[in-house]
């Protein structure tokens, strides 16, 4: 057991390596959170494009979703970072978050589109028959109901997003994954840093899952089931 303690000490305590890991956790959370928020906004607009009756908006939505789904997220991240934002000197993590949000937006748009379509057509008809316009009906009647269907899938997408950010090392950010990688290189230990990395991700996502299901049960209060 001494061996275990020694390796643990070497990997996480010595030279304040846990600080690097804590900073890494911070980076992962920052990038994932901002990407999720921007991704939902992008996704909502792309979903509206796809649901619109206007042909050119459909095409914009379709091309966006196709391109994002048809290319690896690492490639997208690197294109955004080294090409699109090459001459923009914002903080690295913000640019990375934008890249992830562009990616996530495509998936979120499909989730939102499906959620909106899952609301019975009669709801829209009832709203419109009362004299509400299309936007008022969407905002007051359709979207609140769609939220209940959207939320679980959106939670899944957020969880995926947290794990996807493990590639931010490619653009020089030190997140959980990269921190573990550095410790691995510095200590010549593989097991402890990598299993440590896995455990940290797992705990993070477990906490996230618990939080999400709390919010979800709040959304279902009108169901009376």
């Amino acid at each position: 057991m001494d061996g275990f303690q020694d390796t643990f000490y070497k990997c996480f305590i010595k030279d304040d390596r846990y600080m690097m890991m804590l900073d890494g956790i911070g980076v992962t959370i920052k990038v994932a959170l901002l990407a999720a928020i921007l991704g939902i906004i992008i996704g909502f607009f792309i979903a509206l494009c796809n649901l619109s009756k206007k042909k050119f908006l459909n095409i914009i939505g379709k091309v966006y979703t196709d391109v994002i789904r048809g290319t690896p997220s690492v490639t997208q991240l690197m294109i955004v970072y080294f090409v699109i934002f090459a001459s923009v000197h914002w903080e690295k993590w913000i640019i990375a978050a934008i890249a992830f949000s562009i990616n996530s937006g495509a998936y979120v748009s499909e989730i939102i589109r499906a959620g909106i379509l899952s609301v019975d057509k009669g709801q829209t008809e009832a709203g419109r028959s009362l004299g509400l316009n299309a936007k008022q009906t969407m905002v007051n009647i359709v979207v609140p109901q769609a939220m209940k269907n959207i939320f679980p899938a959106l939670g899944n997408e957020f969880i995926t997003l947290v794990k996807e950010t493990a590639i931010v090392g490619y653009v020089g950010l030190v997140d959980i994954q990269k921190a573990g990688d550095f410790i691995k290189s510095a200590t010549y230990e593989a097991f402890m840093p990598l299993i440590g990395t896995a455990i940290i991700y797992f705990v993070l996502i477990k906490l996230l899952t618990i939080g999400l299901s709390k919010i979800e049960s709040g959304l279902r209060k009108s169901d009376a089931r």
Partner: peptide, 14 residues
């Protein structure tokens, strides 16, 4: 013009 539907179409979230 008010309208009443066969399947009521009440707003379930309200």
């Amino acid at each position: 013009m008010g309208m009443v539907f066969q399947h009521f179409n009440l707003f379930p979230h309200l």
